[in-house]
Design a protein around this nucleic acid. Sequence first.
DNA 1: CCAGACGTTGTT
DNA 2: GTCTGG
DNA 3: CCAGACGTTGTT
DNA 4: GTCTGG
Length: 195
Amino acid sequence: MCYHFKQTKTIKDLEKKFKATIDSSETLKPSADINGFKYPKTPIITNLDSSKIQLFNWGLVPDWANEDWKRNYTLNARVETLSEKPAFKNYTENRCIILVDGFYEWQHKGKEKIKFDIGFDNQLFAFAGLYSNNTYTIVTTEAKGIMREIHNTKLRMPFSLKTDDDFKNWLNMEEVNPQYDFTTNQLGFSQPTLF
DNA sequence: CCAGACGTTGTT
DNA sequence: GTCTGG
DNA sequence: CCAGACGTTGTT
DNA sequence: GTCTGG
């Protein structure tokens, strides 16, 4: 799963990395602590117009949902069942990528929980996502590589995209595999990295 | 048949 | 809106 | 979809 | 076996 990530880069950095422009009327708030449970607006790119960076709210709300829709439960979407779930099946072609430079997971060690900052050397990358109206969900997949050590209870990780081809393939419904050669940074302890 | 769900798996 | 548990 | 009913209508 | 309430 993925409920906490960071997007600390500037508009200029985003535009350069993703070869897209952001509408100046939008207010981008770089943050090292983006919490899904607050349904924040964060930068994404949709397959409708990949030349534009837009700000959508995290937590997908289906068209038919009423006002008490629990967005907590649509922060993530399992890639294995996207086309089966009522909340997601209509949106499997509403592809988007979520622009980030890292995310957080807590490794369980006995009773302790150790926080990790995970990414690709703090460089911008993206999560695979789906959107409905102005909301999105982050697609998750089975944990691989180092994520199996860190997210050692649920064994899930965000479906991460790193290269221009990855971005394009996800948006165009082409085959794409998640990247998982993450760099990690243990927070709150002396040693900066593990493994 | 229809009311109720529809989703994921948290650190605080 | 569609699916499903009861 | 499946567990559970599936019957009648007495007074003792 | 078939119907139906939940």
